[in-house]
Simulated assay, not measured.
Amino acid sequence: MRRRLRVAAYAVCVRDGRLLLARSANDDGVPEWVLPGGGMEHGEDPYDTVRREVAEETGYRIEVTGLLGVHSHRLERPRRLRRPVDHHGVRIVYEGRVTGGELRPETGGSTDLAAWHDLGAVPDLRRIALVDIALRLWRERPAGGRG
């Protein structure tokens, strides 16, 4: 089995009771909401990753206002016509504040729409689990930062 490690950085941006999310298609092509963010490039600091990814996916510039925590997950993924993959994801979750830019969809990337959602409506959205994990980190601010 092939092993794969992916380190990524994401932002929780809440303004006026609304959460900034981006929309991406899952492996089956079904749209779901995700936190703006994504994978680190080799040699990139995660702080720079989250600011770059938010700008790419939403059009906004952000100030990182805090580190909320780190979430680690591992799963085995079957691969069509290839060996299965043992995937280990390390997700660094920051709090961010929009400081400029204009909301717009990403062009030529992994997301196709960015939007603000009322915090109370988030449970009704089709979303990835990281959205709930990150919101829990944002609300509870655990001392150990583990999500």
Rank of each mutant, 00 (worst) to 15 (best):
V50F: 07
R51E: 04
R51G: 00
V54Q: 05
A55Q: 13
A55S: 11
E56G: 03
E56L: 07
T58A: 05
T58Y: 11
T58V: 06
G59M: 04
R61K: 08
I62V: 09
I62M: 07
I62L: 06
E63H: 07
E63I: 10
T65I: 01
L68K: 05
G69R: 01
G69S: 06
V70P: 04
V70E: 02
S72L: 13
S72Q: 11
R74S: 10
R74I: 14
R74K: 09
L75D: 10
P78H: 07
P78I: 09
R79W: 05
R80W: 05
R80D: 06
R80G: 02
L81H: 10
L81I: 14
L81S: 14
R82H: 04
R82Q: 00
R83A: 13
R83P: 10
P84E: 03
P84S: 11
V85N: 00
D86F: 12
H87M: 15
H87E: 13
H88V: 14
H88T: 13
H88P: 02
V90I: 15
V90C: 06
Y94K: 11
Y94M: 07
Y94D: 09
E95I: 01
R97N: 03
T99Q: 09
G100D: 01
G100H: 01
G101R: 03
P105H: 12
E106V: 00
E106T: 06
T107W: 08
T107R: 13
T107I: 12
G108R: 07
G108F: 00
G109E: 03
S110L: 13
T111H: 12
D112M: 12
D112K: 11
L113E: 15
